[in-house]
Computed example of a mutant assay.
Amino acid sequence: MNHNEEYELREQLAGLLWGGFAPNIILLREFDHRKAGVILDGLHFSAWILLGHIRARHKTFLQFMKHPEKEIDLWPKAQWPENHQPGKEEWNKAIDEYEAELNEMIALVKDPEIPLFERQSNGRNFSWAAMTVLHHTGYHIGQLKTIGRQLGVW
């Protein structure tokens, strides 16, 4: 892969991590915090639980990218936070923290000094980590969007 191709791939990964044509941060900020703790019939999660779960997985992969030399379990048992009805400040703080973590991962992905394809001691590389995060986040953001539609957020 030449320099231009690698640059293009890094930019594409960064754009997809941000959410592509539907940025995750915008979607989360549009979600009415007063409905974030509602669990619809037939589901075991609310928007609040989904945001906490997304962040927990994201943090694991971010730690791997920041400290690849550490033995980090990249797929620990799923972390599903306890549900409650967050206040506006708590909801916004969680989104702010997620946005900061997301920006940190995007900066790593875009940094040409970061070896995106180099296998680390656990056999994984940073491009795999970024793609896993965007796949996992996309799946759960889709669920969050569906919950929001059912609750009349959009």
Rank of each mutant, 00 (worst) to 15 (best):
E5W: 07
E6S: 09
L9Q: 10
R10P: 01
R10H: 08
E11Q: 15
A14I: 07
A14V: 08
G15A: 09
G15F: 06
L16R: 11
L17R: 00
L17G: 00
W18C: 03
W18P: 00
G19L: 11
G20P: 10
F21I: 02
P23C: 04
P23G: 02
P23Y: 02
L28Y: 05
D32C: 04
R34Q: 15
R34H: 13
G37V: 02
L40E: 13
L40F: 05
D41T: 09
D41I: 03
H44S: 12
H44Q: 12
F45I: 03
A47F: 13
W48E: 00
I49E: 06
I49T: 05
L51H: 06
G52D: 07
H53F: 11
H53K: 04
H58Y: 14
K59C: 05
K59V: 00
K59E: 09
F61C: 02
Q63K: 14
Q63R: 15
F64T: 01
F64S: 01
H67W: 09
H67N: 15
H67F: 14
P68D: 10
P68E: 11
E69M: 04
E69S: 08
E69F: 05
K70F: 09
I72L: 09
I72K: 05
I72Q: 07
L74M: 11
L74C: 10
A78W: 07
W80V: 04
E82V: 04
N83R: 13
H84L: 06
H84W: 14
Q85H: 14
K88E: 14
E89L: 11
E90V: 05
W91H: 02
K93F: 14
A94D: 12
I95L: 06
I95C: 03
D96T: 08
Y98H: 10
Y98L: 14
E99L: 04
A100G: 00
A100L: 09
L102F: 00
N103M: 06
E104T: 08
K110N: 07
K110M: 12
D111T: 10
D111G: 06
P112H: 06
E113P: 00
E113F: 01
P115N: 12
F117S: 07
R119H: 13
R119M: 12
N122Y: 06
G123M: 12
G123K: 11
R124T: 02
F126I: 00
W128P: 00
A129Q: 01
A130K: 02
M131Y: 03
T132L: 11
V133S: 01
L134C: 04
H135Y: 09
H135F: 12
H136R: 10
H140C: 03
H140N: 06
I141F: 13
G142W: 12
Q143H: 15
L144Q: 07
K145F: 03
T146R: 13
G148A: 10
G148Y: 08
G152F: 14
G152V: 12
W154T: 05
